[in-house]
């Protein structure tokens, strides 16, 4: 046990799981948010069909995140969930409606507008809640020992509302660039047109959040301004990606905008992690405080290390099977 730090390994695995979830479920939630703005019903069909084959697998990462946290960092599980009680409920309700809408929308004509709404609102609420979780994480929790002692709506502050909106903008951007990749004709043209606007929205919100964060969290302030550090490299890289999105969209490139958006998310996420490290339940608890017993972490590690590569193989395979453009009129009739 002395030779390697299990908590560190687990932080890596969970961190990986979270970013996997954010990137993969992010673009399909984003499409849901963009749904009402689509030019026509054909475009909506294309949007939905472009993620239909894969969203279900994407969501399993969320379940893995929940169970994995309980297994490796139970404190996160038992502080975040009570603190975000109402938010978690909203997120789950959103995900349920979205999931059901996926299935029933194509099978109904008369009631289709209801399922459109369920899909959009479900996605929007779930995304907002996830953004608020990030904001709450920056903000910190009121704990006594290992127990959350704050109120039901402590998480809902102007700051977390902003991070919630930021997440909505971010996921929409992911969704739009994904659509560029997966569509053609007027749908793709529409996606090209909205991408710069969404990019601008994301940049504005992120600028405000970044300026605000040092005031919300003193330890972040110290880390950012304490010594000239490599941290500043990450936002620079994120900005480079943003510029890339802009350029590639003007040049009507199909694949690069999505890749650049992924990059922007990854660098922002890393920036957040590095700013907070190694605190996992702010303000007081580090990953080592939050860890479960070493024998439990080890027991679980053996299985996970064996299975995750298989899961990744399968995921890649299913993306491969459903590669290529989605055309209007294709799909469900």
């Amino acid at each position: 046990m002395q030779t390697f730090d299990l908590s560190l390994i687990w932080a890596g695995i969970i961190g990986f799981g979270i970013i996997m979830y954010v990137l993969m479920d992010g673009f399909d939630l984003g499409l849901g948010i963009l749904f009402p703005f689509a030019p026509d019903e054909d475009a909506r069909d294309v949007m939905m069909n472009s993620v239909a084959p894969i969203w279900d697998g994407n969501e399993t990462w969320l379940v893995l995140g929940g169970a994995g946290l309980l297994g490796a960092f139970p404190l996160v599980y038992s502080v975040f969930l009570p603190a975000l009680y109402i938010g978690v409920f909203l997120m789950l309700a959103g995900l349920i409606f979205r999931g059901v809408a996926f299935e029933f929308r194509f099978k109904s004509k008369r009631n289709r507008h209801w399922w459109n709404r369920a899909f959009c609102w479900g996605s929007a609420v779930a995304t907002f809640a996830q953004g608020a979780v990030v904001g709450t994480y920056i903000q910190g929790f009121e704990t006594e020992g290992f127990v959350y002692v704050g109120g039901a709506l402590d998480w809902l502050t102007p700051f977390t509302v902003l991070t919630g909106l930021g997440m909505m903008a971010g996921y929409s951007l992911l969704g739009a660039t994904w659509l560029i990749l997966k569509s053609e004709g007027h749908v793709q043209e529409w996606a090209y047109r909205i991408t710069p606007k969404l990019l601008a929205a994301v940049l504005v919100v992120f600028a405000i959040i970044s300026a605000w964060t040092p005031f919300v969290d003193g330890s972040v302030r110290e880390r950012w301004f304490g010594q000239v550090s490599l941290i500043w490299l990450l936002p620079v890289l994120a900005m480079a990606c943003a510029y890339g999105i802009y350029r590639w969209v003007s040049h009507r490139r199909e694949g690069m905008p999505f890749i650049a958006t992924l990059g922007m998310f990854i660098f922002t996420y890393l920036g957040l992690v590095v700013s907070k490290w190694p605190v996992i339940v702010p303000p007081d608890h580090t990953i080592w405080d939050a860890a479960s017993a070493p024998e439990s972490q080890l027991f679980l590690l053996l299985g996970v290390l064996f299975v995750i590569p298989i899961v990744l193989t399968y995921t890649a395979w299913s993306y491969w099977v459903f590669r290529g453009k989605v055309r209007t009129g294709e799909g469900y009739h």
Binding site: V63, A67, L70, P74, Y77, S78
Partner: peptide, 30 residues
């Protein structure tokens, strides 16, 4: 999916206390 969050939202002391056993069980299930 709702079930996997119930332990944390409503029974967090239980989740905290029994995580060493329940966490690996549920994760292995996933």
């Amino acid at each position: 999916i709702v079930m996997s969050f119930q332990f944390g939202t409503n029974w967090s002391n239980f989740a905290q206390a029994s995580a060493n056993f329940l966490g690996p069980m549920l994760s292995y299930e996933v």
